[in-house]
Design a protein around this nucleic acid. Structure first.
Lengths: 247, 247
DNA sequence: ACAAATTATTAACATTTGTTAAGCAATGCT
DNA sequence: AGCATTGCTTAACAAATGTTAATAATTTGT
């Protein structure tokens, strides 16, 4: 995605075609872009929550710490994603958010969402549709974490990342950068770092995935999808013609 | 909850006070209540999706089958819950939904949600707030499934059910009906039925939970919450004064 | 360019959870 | 009442994953 085009606009126009006013409203959410360094916190649990963020560039993740010292990564955010949607109904942050790479974020207050609700039913529907897709994604992840083997989890996650990256970066094929350490992957997949290492070793023995540092190579995407029992209906389904509904 | 009061109204009024018109709009979503038998399917994956359901009485759950024959239960629905929010952005059902007990459901088409969007910003905000709370719940469940031991998962789930039931049934204390078999519990918790049995045995040896058929007794709620590392901020946070925002 | 810190690999061993199977208890059906 | 079905418990064993620790490779900071 080009740096000068609005990520959020790109994201929304997936769902329906927008009028000029709607576009302006959306673009106004990406005012005051802020540079932010790899490794720095966007916010912590318990912080007051009154704004969303759009991630204009860079990667980020949200996470929680458990009592036994373990960490669980809840989401990986890519450019164009909205961070903090979950806390709309809460006054506090429910999770920590940290940048993975250097990036640019734009803050906008919850109140602005109400302007969207007020001004455009289409945009309201899209926001809602985004939230509902987001849930579908979470659900899929839940199944993944609850019921699949380390091998399947890993394959599933990698394939999901591939699809998500391709959504905004259509030239991506079976080779891309995945700026995550094995420790981070472990915290995403609910495994120990040691077992992640074992799993990658066995995946590359089978020729399914090669990981050299942060570079991933997937020789056979279809094979990987099968290894992860990937069912892409939750990502691939034709986007609902929401504008038809609202007509 | 009394049978003759609208569940959905009750649910929404948690979030903000509603005008007469708003109440009427909501109540109209619960027209044409339909009786439905324990064990019957509301819908299956792949069915066309164009409506939501409100669960007026009874319990239900949504689930998915995995390739290896395992089943994962995604959500347990209680009276007042809206079923199928997730599929707003999809044209097909992404999961199966089945009644646990006999119950009453009301169907209303996705289109009606757009009427809400059109007619009331407060209601729109509440719908969005409900969706965002729902996500918070899912996230908590994700952590639970990914990172906790069988004992913790079980304690966590039981305590969550207690809190959810108490929300609409304020007289509930450490004793209530949980109409779920151990097989169903296993599919909720991502465990095998045998291990659920072991886990309950050990929980009752410790005096934390007694389960006799579908009757649960929790002598010390606080102790159970601790055993499940339960952090109730995702349920207990003061509800955002949304009407302030929209003023 | 070097030292320090981080990240990944491997092995041995421990623990948790799954699987199979058998028996028992409860429930529903006729 | 008797039989079949379903649900629960227990035990023995198997498999997957976690833990610790030692080592190697890589990156970072100065």
């Amino acid at each position: 995605m080009s740096q000068d085009q609005s990520c959020i606009l790109h994201h929304f126009s997936h769902y329906c075609s927008l009028s000029k006013e709607e576009k302006e409203l959306l673009v106004s959410l990406e005012e005051s872009p802020t540079d932010i360094k790899a490794g720095s916190l966007l916010w912590e649990m318990g912080d007051p929550a009154s704004e969303f963020c759009t991630l204009k560039s860079g990667w980020a993740f949200s996470y929680r710490h458990l009592e036994n010292g373990n960490r669980q990564i809840l989401e990986v955010f890519l450019p164009g994603d909205i961070i903090g949607l979950r806390e709309f109904a809460f006054s506090q942050r429910l999770e920590n958010v940290r940048m993975i790479t250097d990036g640019v974020v734009c803050h906008f207050p919850h109140k602005r969402l109400l302007e969207i609700f007020r001004q455009s039913i289409s945009l309201t529907s899209v926001v809602f549709a985004i939230a509902s897709r987001h849930q579908a994604l979470l659900t899929e992840r839940l199944v993944n974490l609850a019921r699949r083997s380390a091998r399947q989890k890993t394959a599933h996650f990698l394939y999901e990342m591939y699809l998500r990256l391709r959504q905004t970066n259509s030239h991506i094929d079976g080779q891309f950068r995945l700026p995550l350490s094995q420790e981070q992957l472990a915290d995403i997949l609910g495994l120990s770092p040691v077992h992640v290492s074992r799993t990658f070793s066995s995946l590359s023995e089978e020729g399914l995935v090669f990981r050299d540092r942060h570079n991933l190579t997937i020789p056979d995407l279809k094979a990987l999808a099968e290894a992860g029992e990937f069912d892409d209906c939750y990502l691939h389904d034709d986007v609902r013609p929401l504008f038809d509904l609202s007509a």
